[in-house]
Design a protein around this nucleic acid. Sequence first.
DNA 1: TTTCTGACTTTTTTAGTTACAAAGTCAAAA
DNA 2: TTTTGACTTTGTAACTAAAAAAGTCAGAAA
Lengths: 202, 202
Amino acid sequence: MLTENRDEMRERIIDAALKRFTYYGASKTTMSEIAEDLHCSKASLYYYFPDKQALHIAALEKAGETYFLDLREKANAAATARQALMELIAVRHEFARRFCRLELFKVLKDRQLVRFAHEAFENAREREIKLITDIIEKGAARGELVTAEPEKVAALYMHAMIGLRLSLVNKDISEEISDAEFERVREWQVQLADIFINSLKK
Amino acid sequence: MLTENRDEMRERIIDAALKRFTYYGASKTTMSEIAEDLHCSKASLYYYFPDKQALHIAALEKAGETYFLDLREKANAAATARQALMELIAVRHEFARRFCRLELFKVLKDRQLVRFAHEAFENAREREIKLITDIIEKGAARGELVTAEPEKVAALYMHAMIGLRLSLVNKDISEEISDAEFERVREWQVQLADIFINSLKK
DNA sequence: TTTCTGACTTTTTTAGTTACAAAGTCAAAA
DNA sequence: TTTTGACTTTGTAACTAAAAAAGTCAGAAA
């Protein structure tokens, strides 16, 4: 059969899995359930993915890729560095709200996934830092900002933003995060972004 | 007997408990062990504290109080706002290194302690934010800084600082945090402080 | 030949159970 | 008033068995 069909089935499986993972979390989703959703047998899933982990990883990668495309697009469309950073916050906010149940973090307990997850997180953070670096550099080229170390500032910015979320939503992973809390995080992030922008205006 | 003796015994118990809690964590410390350290019976501990939780809370309060006295002292001695913030980072750094095993966070699993812990944390954060607000206002009075909302900036600063630690030491609570990691957090916090200072210089 | 499946085995979770350790009590001594 | 040894109660860790989910494979279907 054609490769396209094979790839298409892979995609269908990833989509079905992602749906379940997003609503119930990966550990509360069984392969049988995914198979039922697709009206196929569980064994079929194992024809396309060696194990559940591989499917989980593929789903995470897909979600991440969508996220990054969105990030890049919005950042490029922005007229100023400030606006670009604000767009990034908005995209991140949406992503976090949508995929907070994906068990991006719970995954860390799985010994084999630790390796992958750690690598993937580092990677994602690096990519996002690069994006922010670009925004800062573009802002510097425009005369909007001044900084000697855009890369360093971008990394600091990234960690502070992630940290703000972690600091404000104190809770255990098991508990739900309310919309109000998400909104609160977003507001603080906006303010922190303004601090950075202001600092870089010199 | 005199009240002083009663208070003194209480203090001795708290100190002994704090020592054990600091080295092994509260859950890995038994009341019998604390009693042995003090060469008294376990029942005696229950004469001074209704239960283990109360002792744990007393120990946390003592540690926190020491920390705050140190914070205030160092902040007041500093000549500039920048220097004061740097001193705060140093004190926080030392405190975190020393008491990271105190199970300040693990405590959260205990249903009854949740109430206290949450309240205590909020309280501690509030006090620290107030300290930072003072520093900023003093800096503004001196003409070193400019801001319309010192309180708001101080809260943002506090959360970003806590968050930076959480973001950088990603690990589970069960794992040890290395000295190198602590140092890394400190360095990033210093840089973030400079961003804030710079931003407030207008 | 590639894709798919039912029936199967293996592994992991979960819900009890028990045994031991630690928390907590109390009558009586100092 | 303070302290304690001997006591009861409560919580936890280590087993176990049963159930559920993961994962395999020979062979059917396309």
